[in-house]
Design a protein around this nucleic acid. Structure first.
Length: 430
DNA sequence: TCTGGGGTCCTAGGACCC
DNA sequence: TCTGGGGTCCTAGGACCC
């Protein structure tokens, strides 16, 4: 079963503010560069859609209520609904605040006749409405995740569709290929060039044709889904793989110092969230969207995971040095991936995430390292060090350990073949 | 003043290792 | 003159989803 709450954020707003009922409500970014997250059906009548720029939504529906969103309220409503679903079956896979798959066979349900499923689903929709103060949900039920999801979309809002076993292909064949999850604008265009518009067209193509055009993974997935072949299980608990914070600014940023300040603040927010969930990660990334909407990312992987705001900020600022922000930057972001569900002992705050001490005492006079001008941390094959100073072709590195604090200081020739310059270009050391 | 923010998954190339 | 075949890890970018 797939359950989808209708126009979720907008519906919560209309529930909580009676004056908004029956009126167009648009929730999303309200600034000059905002987009629509969700809108009520009254707003959809004016052509407003999710992901549309708020600017355009205002032009189409100037009298709508434009709201920034109260995510606490949405989270609360979501928790209530997910709780009801978990009453039905232990196998509930939330996809977002307003959507979930439920494995009905893993729950108590034994009668899968259409009559019994209809009664069950209508009862569930009534329970959701009652427990949430009137929110409506659309439900789809089928023999796979794919079919359930397709079904829940067919009679939105406030609908219920059950696709009986054996009828999958006849339902899918006339539909546009983009009903298949994973087929977005780019794939639609490639398929169109192949002469594929509908699921039936897709089904007529061989596995070889599709994998050649779309790649192994995507091609095979489409070949299977076009035949309604889908055995993906409902997975109740999925672990997070990354944590990130990003922001688009009303006006493009042009000052590097300001960008560094933004990254530093975002690193703090990322670290807070990591710490709240007991997570830490090895790979620190930044995302930079330039004035022309081109997006670049840079990342760097540490020898061991961190959840330290200072460490993440230091790395993020260092990564920015490798990006040319000429023309202005509209978005900046910081992320941490390669998550581990444990945190290293943090004896010295920001600088305590040293290598295991056993690797440090014997600091070699030569080592492989990554360093570039402006970077104040060096990762080596023997451990981590802080750049103490750099000049006259020499890099001085101070090593620290959690046990002893500041450790030995060593100098390395910057042109030493074993002190490998980090990309992209050999650094000019002045 | 076109085009959010939080994610996931995939691909491709290079370094490196045996 | 000719230079394998697996595998892993890392980085960058892109497509996609809600």
């Amino acid at each position: 079963m797939h359950l989808d709450l209708d126009a979720f954020y907008a519906s919560v707003e209309q529930r909580d503010k009676p004056s908004l009922r029956g009126k167009p409500v648009i929730v999303g970014g309200t600034g000059g560069r905002g987009v629509v997250a969700t809108c009520s059906y009254e707003a959809r009548a004016f052509g407003v859609r999710s992901a549309m720029s708020t600017r355009e939504a205002r032009a189409r529906c100037p009298h709508a209520a434009f709201l920034g969103g109260r995510f606490h309220a949405y989270g609360e409503a979501s928790r209530i609904v997910m709780g009801i679903l978990r009453d039905v079956s232990p196998l509930v896979e939330p996809l977002s605040l307003d959507e979930a798959f439920v494995d009905l066979a893993a729950g108590g349900l034994t009668d899968f006749s259409t009559t019994a499923l209809t009664a069950f689903a209508e009862g569930l929709r009534a329970r959701v409405a009652e427990a949430t103060g009137g929110l409506t949900a659309s439900i789809g039920i089928g023999t796979s995740k794919f079919m359930a999801k397709v079904a829940s979309d067919l009679q939105k809002p406030d609908g219920l569709v059950i696709v009986e076993p054996g009828r999958e292909q006849q339902l899918l064949r006339p539909m546009a290929a983009k009903v298949i999850p994973g087929v977005g604008p780019a794939t639609v265009e490639r398929l169109r060039r192949m002469g594929v518009q509908t699921v039936a067209d897709l089904e007529s193509r061989t596995l070889e044709e599709l994998t050649l055009e779309l790649g192994q993974s995507h091609g095979q997935s489409l070949w299977r889904l076009a035949r309604a072949l889908d055995d993906r299980p409902v997975i109740a608990e999925r672990e997070a793989k990354s944590v990130s914070v990003e922001g688009t600014y009303e006006e493009d940023l042009t000052d590097r110092k300001l960008m560094e300040a933004v990254l530093t603040r975002q690193a703090g927010q990322v670290a807070d969230r990591l710490q709240k969930h007991g997570l830490s990660g090895r790979t620190i990334s930044i995302k930079v969207r330039l004035y022309d909407f081109t997006t670049v990312s840079r990342s760097s992987t540490l020898p061991s995971p961190t959840d330290s705001a200072a460490m993440i900020a230091r790395l993020a600022r260092g990564l920015l040095a490798d990006v040319d922000p000429t023309g202005g930057v509209r978005l900046l972001g910081v992320g941490v991936s390669g998550l581990a569900d444990w945190v290293q002992d943090d004896l010295f705050g920001a600088v305590a995430e040293a290598e295991p001490e056993a690797e440090l005492p014997d600091v070699p006079s030569r080592m492989r390292a990554q360093w570039w001008p402006g970077q104040d941390v060096v990762h080596t094959d023997r451990g981590r060090g802080w750049v103490w100073g750099a000049g006259k072709g020499v890099v001085t590195v101070r090593f620290e350990t959690a046990e002893t604090g500041p450790g030995p200081v060593r100098s390395y020739r910057a042109d030493d073949p074993d002190l490998v310059p980090w990309k992209p270009e050999p650094p000019e050391v002045s």
